[in-house]
Design a protein around this nucleic acid. Structure first.
Lengths: 208, 208
DNA sequence: GCTTTATTGGCAGATGCTGCCAGTAAAGCT
DNA sequence: AGCTTTACTGGCAGCATCTGCCAATAAAGC
């Protein structure tokens, strides 16, 4: 089975798992139920996911991937604020993507379910690597330099806070254009504060 | 039993658990073994810790608490860089504290053991709240403002990267004064990049 | 000394998760 | 097509993790 097919299977299971988690809670949902709902045996479920909580990963990855993609296309001569304003959609094909609500719902769930939050934080940390690569390519600093890793982690952290806010705002007032725009604006502003040092950081330092 | 006594019990168990984890690995260490080594029943172990991986929390908390304490005493008229240089010790009473090596060892373990890493990241995120409080008191912005939470998360993220580096450096070249100083210096520099926007952020914004 | 309360330990049991093997289907070779 | 090889799945056994419940013990209050 190809990697892509495997990923599709994981995503399919993820959708069912998130729905069950939302309906009756994480604790009240067993691996057996997830497997049954997704139409696979329990054995294959555990082959796809190490724990039942990690069943939410494929959907959560969508949100992170959307931001990474936007960051990746950030032109060298543009302000990050400006670039995000036109290039960042929380989910790439937001309007047509039926997963949009599910993604925000699961992010909201992570706020109350520690095990889900832990899985979420792990995903985000893995994303820091790719953020660092993007920043490295941009600044010319080697990707493993301390300053660069620190900046990447900071960017990721700001992005996390913004996404959490969006998730609860969307639950309160729906996924309106205003909410989304506000989210982008807040995120871009906070990021520009944190990345302000980027040009300084691009000059190699003794302690890098 | 007082909260303090409970915390001492947790710390005691934590020491035993970390030693076992280091000796034979996390997977090869059962909750029963941890309980037995710590001299309590398995039942009380599960009353103190939700999972066997969370047995490392009390020791990890020490490292985070040390930084929080340093941040807390940051005077308003001082540069963070300068303050950390004189106020921050990775573990408060480093030289006399026999837990110092254990703390760094468990941080190193989190780099290879996903379940431990997840527990670590959860602890760090809880600490963001207290960072935000400190920054709020300092800047006068309400603690829940988005910019402030973002800054707190960024500070926490930079601190995380620095601590990870310290842990592997200390394993390679021992816990020497040079390593510790270098750590403080890197941390302070990176933090000053990230907190550079703090004075701007203290002016209330429409989207805060 | 007696009652009340809090903490612990043991036991039963559900759930999470893994190793192993057999069944099955797809893909390649002749 | 027929055969072989390979890869994936499902079922089962079994250990480990974690929880609810109750009894035992100890501490605290009267």
């Amino acid at each position: 089975m190809s990697d892509e097919q495997r990923e599709l299977q994981r995503l399919d299971i993820s959708r069912h798992a998130v729905r069950l988690f939302a309906e009756r809670g994480v604790a009240a949902t067993s691996g057996e139920q997830i497997a049954q709902t997704a139409g696979v045996s329990e054995r294959t479920l555990w082959r796809c996911f190490r724990t039942k909580e990690s069943c939410v990963e494929p959907l959560l990855t969508k949100a992170i991937e959307a931001f990474r993609a936007a960051l990746h296309t950030w032109p060298a001569d543009t302000e990050l604020t400006e670039h995000l304003r036109e290039a960042y959609e929380v989910v790439p094909d937001w309007s047509s993507d039926t997963d949009a609500e599910a993604v925000l719902a699961v992010i909201r769930m992570t706020l109350d379910e520690p095990a889900l939050r832990a899985a979420y934080l792990m995903l985000r940390e893995r994303a820091e690597d790719t953020f660092a690569e993007v920043l490295a390519e941009r600044t010319g600093v080697e990707p493993d330099a301390f300053v660069l890793r620190a900046q990447a982690a900071a960017v990721s952290a700001v992005f996390k806070v913004a996404t959490d806010r969006l998730a609860v705002d969307a639950a309160a007032s729906g996924i309106s254009t205003e909410v989304l725009d506000r989210h982008r604006e807040q995120l871009a502003n906070a990021l520009s504060l944190v990345t302000r040092g980027l040009s300084d950081a691009s000059r190699p330092r003794a302690d890098g």
